[in-house]
Amino acid sequence: MKVLLVAEYRDGKVLGSISDLLGFAARTGADHAMFVVGSEAALPAYGGTLYLADAETYGEYRPAVHKQLLLAAIDKVKPDLVVFSHSSYGWDLAPRVACALGLAQVSEVVDYVDGTLVVPVCNAKLRRTVEIKTGGAVVTLQAGAFGGSEPETAAPSLERVAVETTDRVEFLGYEAAEAGGIDLSKAEVIVSAGRGIGKPENISLIADLAKAFGGEYGASRPVVDAEWAEHARQVGTTGQSVAPKLYIACGISGAIQHLAGMKKSDFIVAINTDRDAPIGDVADVLAVADLTKLVPVLIEKLTAS
């Protein structure tokens, strides 16, 4: 088997997700090559053959341009699998490439067992194995699912990729993350609110519990999107990554994007009415309870002692 790994490059840097790509290649035991629209000045830590399209020429991500460049590399490599990270780059580009090649696309692969790809269903509550009916496939990998491989130290051997192409989508620029006033990474205890808090008034309960521990309160994405808490308090891939001594997830089901931002915490407590919620997989203690009843009692006992 041969796989083509699609690395990501943004604004002058290769993104870290190549460790997932290399981990996947190692797990499958496949021969591999890599593709990136990047720069010779910032090559990925990869010792194999790198198909390089010059970012100076082709600019930041525009879907039709990157699609044509990648198709040109695929034409040379003739891989069985084209492998992306399941990221804003991968999930945007992968379907376009699959469509052009007439191949199946398998999204957010979390495992590879006996030659079969495994993907999550229903917010990771379920999983399924996928049978591919085309001669090859395009896949995206869940962040962290195959990671942990050592960066390679040898320099890649370069193969240039160039095409004549244009795009109807225009790239105008990047907008940096909002600078928030709250640095959750310094808090020893973080109590976070999820959608399960039910209504915005209950944010104060979560804030009070955080205060009782001398910590800060955070929030999951849905709570921030609903404007029940400010973005600076968001924990997860599009917010802050934290690793406090104690993390208490209140009414948070445990979407992968949230887990990615908090699972390195030393000790994790989840308070949830749903004992099957995926947050239970990372929690040291799961209190199956209505948080509006449990949290006030906890606050009372903590402040009394």
Binding site: E60, S87, S88, V169, F171, Y174, E175, A177, T238
Partner: peptide, 14 residues
């Protein structure tokens, strides 16, 4: 605006 990772957004037009 497309949402990228780490709170960064890409401004695009079409």
């Amino acid at each position: 605006r497309r949402e990228l990772e780490g709170g960064v957004k890409a401004r695009v037009a079409t």
